[in-house]
């Protein structure tokens, strides 16, 4: 399983959508295309914006379908980060 540590790329406040998109295109999409699992490790990330998480995962749900969530693990997320991820996961499934 591939593990991506977000803190070195995003800092403690994950808000830069350009970085989110880069992580998705460079690391996440190629892994999922190979039907492999991936862990996004949020250790040290204090909070994230909905825009950041949207740029990170929305296209994956749209392109691979809702089932892609079986292959993505979100690790070391605090309550706020969990809430933001849940918001994006919920509304993407509502919109597809």
């Amino acid at each position: 399983m591939k593990i991506i540590k977000l803190l070195p790329k995003t800092g403690i406040f994950a808000e830069n959508k350009d970085i989110a998109r880069e992580i998705r295109i460079k690391y996440i999409t190629p892994t999922l295309e190979k039907n492999e699992e991936i862990t996004l490790d949020f250790e040290g990330v204090e909070s994230a914006t909905q825009s950041f998480v949207h740029a990170l995962i929305s296209e994956l749900i749209r392109n691979f379908g809702n089932e892609v969530l079986n292959n993505i693990y979100f690790k070391n997320c605090n309550k706020s980060v969990q809430e933001i991820i849940n918001i994006v996961v919920d509304y993407m499934q509502a919109a597809t």
């Binding site: 959508k17 998109r21 998705r24 909905q50 825009s51 949207h54 740029a55 929305s58 296209e59 749209r62 994006v88 509304y91 993407m92 509502a94 919109a95 597809t96």
Partner: peptide, 23 residues
């Protein structure tokens, strides 16, 4: 929510959800 200036599609694009101001 769901309306953005970047697409007609509700839910937005890979980059914009149309959620920022609602939040």
């Amino acid at each position: 929510p769901g309306i953005t200036g970047t697409t007609k599609r509700i839910g937005g694009t890979d980059y914009n959800a149309g959620a920022g101001l609602f939040f």
